[in-house]
């Protein structure tokens, strides 16, 4: 009886406090009691962000934890979520599959967060269609027109006469932003299905004969091959340049594949302690092998300089 009363009382107290804090607009402070980002000192590293990078991040964390006492936890939610968490100093590392914008870096600085960047692997952002779709090659212009809603039928692209169904990500996704900046140069057509993650796009495209989608290369492949049910499109910048496939590692390493992009880690300040050990492991040969096993590609020479700058 006494215990129940205690429980009820403390619940009431917590709720009242919650309301009070909400009133004063300090909800962050209230919830902040339950989490703290000072844990990195004790070897507990929190990584949050890109859905594209969750699998590779987890693979790297597991490999790292096998040989270290540090604990790494990797969660997804989208690059935007990771950036927001870094700005609010809630995480040690933000996984971001695009580049942080200037205004985001400024916001972080205003919060006392000094942003440093590292590159953990390369992605050849894959444009995928259903395996039954005969369309194999697309240019930037064509993909952009499809996603802007200007091309609505596969017949216009030499395919069968069926309406195109669009699959893409939600606005919290770095891939959503990267794709829009680099391919669309405009807004997504509002009939695009906004899926919750790469895996859902893959499932959607496999089940839908008229689908087109975009996912990180690690989600489009299985053991280096196209995942069954998917067709990975060869992409060219325009009709005069050559079509390149993201399935060929050289195309991503040299940048011949036009949607090759770095997968970024952003830190608050120069990495130290457990975070430093983790990033050193990632850029080591062993770490890069783990990245390749997860379906992505090693950091290309162009971006190794970013890591050299970070670690020296």
């Amino acid at each position: 009886m006494f215990n129940k009363k205690c429980l009820a009382l403390s619940l009431a107290l917590i709720l009242t406090l919650g309301v009070l804090f909400s009133f004063t607009g300090q909800a962050g402070a209230f919830f902040g009691w339950f989490s703290s980002s000072d844990d990195a000192e004790q070897g507990y590293v929190q990584v949050r962000g890109s859905d594209t990078m969750v699998n590779i991040g987890q693979a790297l964390a597991e490999a790292f934890m096998e040989q270290s006492e540090h604990e790494i936890s990797v969660t997804g939610g989208g690059s935007g979520t990771g950036v927001a968490a870094l700005i609010n100093n809630e995480v040690d590392i933000a996984n971001v599959s695009r580049d942080m914008t200037d205004s985001e870096v400024e916001q972080a600085a205003a919060n006392g967060v000094d942003v440093y960047r590292g590159v953990i692997a390369m992605d050849g952002l894959a444009v995928v269609v259903n395996e039954n779709n005969p369309v194999q090659d697309l240019t930037f212009d064509e993909i952009g027109a499809i996603y802007r809603g200007e091309i609505t039928n596969w017949a216009e692209l030499g395919g069968p006469d069926m309406e195109i169904s669009l699959y893409g990500r939600q606005s919290n996704s770095g891939t959503f932003v990267y794709f829009r900046e680099n391919v669309l140069d405009g807004d997504y057509c509002d009939t695009k299905n906004q899926m919750n993650g790469n895996a859902q796009i893959v499932e959607g495209v496999r089940a839908d004969r008229s689908a087109i989608g975009y996912v990180g290369i690690g989600y489009a492949t299985e053991g280096g091959q196209e995942r069954s049910g998917l067709g990975v499109v060869n992409v060219a910048v325009d009709s005069n340049s050559e079509y390149a496939s993201p399935l060929v590692p050289e195309n991503v390493a040299t940048g011949a594949y036009p949607l090759a992009r770095p997968l970024n880690n952003y830190f608050n300040g120069q990495p130290t302690g457990a975070v430093l050990e983790f990033i050193e492991f990632i850029v080591s040969e062993e770490g890069q092998n783990v990245a390749v096993e997860a379906g992505f590609y090693p950091v290309s020479p162009e971006f190794q300089s970013v890591n050299d700058e970070l670690l020296n």
Binding site: Q170, S171, N172, D190, T191, K192, N193, Q194, M195, N196
Partner: peptide, 24 residues
């Protein structure tokens, strides 16, 4: 599907109030 377009029929993709808050 969460396509933000105005729903045309029960056979089209829709996006609810709750989903919008959760996503964004």
């Amino acid at each position: 599907g969460n396509a933000p377009a105005f729903p045309k029929s029960f056979f089209g993709s829709i996006r609810t109030l709750t989903a919008t808050i959760a996503i964004e």
